[in-house]
Amino acid sequence: MPKRVDHEERRWQIAAAVRRIAADRGLEGVSLNEVAAEAGISKGFVQHYFASRDDMLRYAATTLRGGVEERIASAGEPGVRDLLVALLPLDDAARDDALVANAFLVRALKDPAIAGHFRTGHGQLRDAVAAMLAAARDDGTLVSTVDPPAEAASLLALVSGLGDAVLLGYQSGEEAIALIDLHLSRIATTQGKTR
């Protein structure tokens, strides 16, 4: 009986090879030959699933959120702070995810499909943080004057900048977390914390 091939799993494996190369050498290092070698398959096999390098990169861009989602899920029922901390490059896997995301961010400036993926993902994340902030405001954990959508946008901008600072080494992970805590303490009531 012939072996069943899970085509989506194969595409995911190729995308994982793209991400590994991008984490190490940026997207400049991603070619069909390099991806085939990294994935341990033939170039023809890569071409079977992706007609071009652009198609392969666009698909790989749709797989970027996996690591962040795993870190958030591992926090159990995360609070705002847990979610924000999960976005920081605090260990090797998170650092690789951030390097890959930054490589794709540069590509997104010229590729509307990848840019659209970034906008959609950011919007979903902003909405999730805003909903968590609204719930915390409603249960008295945050001051009543908090504007959840504006605060979510501000917090995500803060974390984005802190992530780059950690990657570049001019902030430590501990310093970045302390700055998140400082910002959250400014909107917290004395009754609770946003953890």
Rank of each mutant, 00 (worst) to 15 (best):
M56S: 05
S144K: 11
N33K: 13
G26I: 04
R10G: 07
A15Q: 02
G169R: 11
P112L: 02
E8N: 08
N102Q: 14
A37K: 15
L182S: 11
Q171V: 14
S52I: 05
L182W: 09
M1V: 10
R195W: 13
L142Q: 11
R65I: 05
D97P: 00
S160M: 09
A176N: 09
S154N: 10
L142G: 07
A75F: 02
N33Q: 10
G116P: 05
G116M: 04
F104W: 05
V129P: 00
D6E: 07
Y59K: 04
L32E: 09
E77V: 12
L88F: 04
T120S: 13
A108W: 13
V100C: 05
K193H: 08
A23E: 00
S144E: 15
A51W: 07
P148Y: 09
L142Y: 03
R20D: 12
G26F: 09
T120E: 13
L162C: 07
V18M: 01
G161N: 12
L88A: 04
A165F: 10
P149V: 12
H117D: 11
S74C: 03
L84M: 09
D111Q: 01
E69I: 10
L158S: 02
D164Y: 08
A60P: 05
N102H: 13
E174K: 14
D24H: 12
R58E: 15
L133K: 10
T190F: 08
F118P: 07
D138W: 05
R11S: 01
V129T: 10
V5W: 01
S52T: 15
A150C: 01
D54H: 04
T62H: 07
R11C: 00
A113H: 11
R119H: 13
I114W: 02
R107C: 02
A157P: 01
V143Q: 14
V85K: 05
P112A: 11
F104D: 01
D96E: 15
